[in-house]
């Protein structure tokens, strides 16, 4: 990433960017490698992962279970130090969780504070951000309303179903007004119908807020349905297989979009790629990063 672009980047608090600024890279992941040193053997969770996410983009990362998606997201969010490579947000290296970044964890149930109500869970990060009381109240109300949990605001997480807990986690991330929203297989554990609703919720929130979303999933269909771009990861040793632009119309719908011939073509292409990768195919280094 050139320094010129970063110099003109707005401050992290600014979340009101417009969608035609798609070309500005916001998040840059270069040569990321992570090896977990175990007692008797080392696990190479990520071999070499490189991609960028543009400002205001909704990008999906898809890869098989155990390929290191969670590890990748923990490196991107500054929770985990990579073994090699770098992550930069707005041109600044990420070494700890940066301002203006929110994460929805795969184990959403465990990411909510069980001693706080849904409302308090959403409000606490805002208090930490020193958002004034009135503004806080507005943001929490709006976020809980957006995810359809207005009536459950005083419930504790353990009084809610899995899908509702996930909504609280999403509401918390949304109310935080992040510049980048990272989501780690957020819907892997909810039933199919709730899952469809939550997918549409994510797209609606993304369109409304103009936030940059990096959505991680093992589900190719979900990635194609949600994303503007899909970055396909290989199984371990993990590298980027391809970066696919999703040319589906912006207005998406669970039924019509999923039955478009174009949808079928895209998912077939990605499935084929994953199959070939299983048989040993790896992209050439110079084609790893499409121009």
């Amino acid at each position: 990433m050139s320094t010129l672009e970063t110099a003109s980047a707005p401050p992290p608090q600014d979340t009101t960017m417009d969608h035609d600024a798609h070309t500005t890279p916001l998040l840059d992941v270069t040569g990321l490698r992570k090896v977990f040193a175990g007692a008797n053997r080392a696990v190479e969770a990520l071999q070499e992962v490189t991609f960028t996410v543009s400002r205001g983009e909704l990008m999906c990362l898809v890869g098989p279970s155990g390929c290191g998606k969670t590890t990748l997201l923990r490196c991107v969010s500054g929770l985990l130090a990579p073994s090699a490579g770098a992550v930069t947000l707005n041109g600044a290296p990420v070494t700890e969780p940066p301002r203006g970044m929110a994460v929805v964890f795969q184990e959403y149930g465990r990411s909510l504070f069980p001693w706080l109500t849904a409302w308090q869970n959403v409000e606490l990060p805002l208090k930490e951000k020193k958002v004034p009381r009135d503004e806080r109240k507005r943001l929490v109300t709006e976020a809980l309303d957006a995810v359809g949990l207005t009536d459950s605001r005083n419930a504790h997480p353990w009084e809610l179903s899995g899908g509702m807990q996930q909504r609280v986690a999403i509401a918390r991330a949304v109310a935080y007004e992040p510049q980048v929203l990272l989501m780690d297989e957020p819907f892997a554990a909810v039933d199919a119908q709730t899952r469809g609703e939550l997918e549409d919720l994510v797209r609606a929130l993304w369109q409304r807020l103009g936030v940059t979303v990096l959505f991680v999933t093992h589900d190719i269909d979900e990635a194609v349905y949600l994303g503007q771009r899909v970055v396909v990861l290989s199984a371990s040793p993990t590298v980027v297989l391809d970066d696919v632009a999703i040319t589906l119309p912006g207005d998406r719908d669970q039924i019509t979009t999923r039955s478009l011939p174009q949808f079928a073509e895209l998912r077939a292409a990605i499935y084929e790629l994953v199959q070939r990768a299983k048989n040993g195919y790896r992209p050439q280094p110079d084609t790893e990063r499409p121009a």
């Binding site: 969780p97 964890f105 990411s111 504070f113 606490l124 930490e128 951000k129």
Partner: peptide, 11 residues
């Protein structure tokens, strides 16, 4: 995960 959450939201 709860620890990670607290770190992410910069408690």
């Amino acid at each position: 995960v709860l620890r990670d959450t607290a770190r992410c939201y910069r408690f």
